[in-house]
């Protein structure tokens, strides 16, 4: 079973990282890196939640909203997909205070990354909803369901299973993008790596361990999404009532 081998490899990679780190006598900087990893995970989770919400709102707004909502959704998707994540991060961080909006760096990070990935996610959601057979809509109409009820009870549960693999990729993209927040002074894994590097000069070890940490977190996301996909697929085929 590929899932089990994946779990094993994640655990192996992570423990290998820890073992190498502790044996080589880097105990001094490992706690710092772990702290940074926690911040990275926090931003990844927060950003992912925001991304999913933003993606659903934008996709449904673009597909079924009245024209002002549709234009707003299209504008959001195009602007966030068309510019760099780093530019968006800096814009929120440097430009918003100019208009009197002062946000915590952590809020800026979650907002920028969540909205950025949400714009890509909107296209994933749209594609998945459109891939549900037309007959499902017609059947829902025949049963006298409203559009929203049909969307919520019939279409989205079926589209959901198809969305999971691309969302897994997007969450990994988001995890990778969290490294950018180190540039707006948040002490995530990438920031800690640079900070500790400047005091200990153990460049090779630090950056190697940091890469392994990111790989371990990414593998965890992959494993979790595979498990979710299996459960969701089982739920659909059993025909939940």
């Amino acid at each position: 079973m590929p899932l089990r081998s994946l779990v094993v490899s994640v655990i192996l990679a992570f423990t290998a990282g820890l073992v190498v780190a502790s044996f080589a006598g880097f105990r001094e900087f490992l706690p710092g890196l772990l702290q940074g990893a926690l911040v990275t995970i926090q931003i990844t989770v927060g950003g992912s939640v925001l991304a999913v919400i933003a993606a659903f709102i934008a996709a449904i707004g673009k597909m079924y909203g009245p024209w002002p909502v549709r234009w707003l959704a299209v504008g959001y998707i195009e602007v966030f997909r068309g510019t760099s994540a780093l530019v968006q991060l800096f814009w929120l961080f440097f430009v918003l205070p100019h208009f009197g909006i002062l946000l915590e760096p952590l809020t800026v990070a979650i907002l920028a990354l969540g909205l950025n990935v949400g714009a890509y996610g909107a296209e994933v959601v749209r594609g998945a909803i459109q891939s549900v057979a037309k007959g499902q809509w017609e059947a829902a109409t025949a049963l006298n369901m409203g559009r929203l009820t049909a969307l919520r009870r019939i279409i989205i549960p079926q589209a959901f299973v198809r969305m999971i693999p691309p969302w897994g990729n997007l969450f990994i993209e988001l995890l990778k993008a969290t490294a950018l927040v180190s540039l707006i002074t948040i002490s995530d894994l990438a920031f800690k790596a640079q900070q500790i590097n400047q005091t200990t000069f153990r460049t090779v070890e630090i950056f190697t361990i940091v890469l392994v940490f990111y790989l371990a977190i990414a593998s965890l996301i992959t494993v979790a999404m595979r498990a979710l996909e299996e459960r969701a697929a089982a739920g659909i085929s059993r025909g939940r009532s």
Binding site: A179, L180, A190, Q194, V204, F207, T208, L211, Y214
Partner: peptide, 21 residues
Amino acid sequence: EFIRSTPLLIQIFFIFFVFPE
């Protein structure tokens, strides 16, 4: 797989800071 799962920023740092070692 490794390169795809790790952040580009760290890879930039790796090449810029670690290679000189």
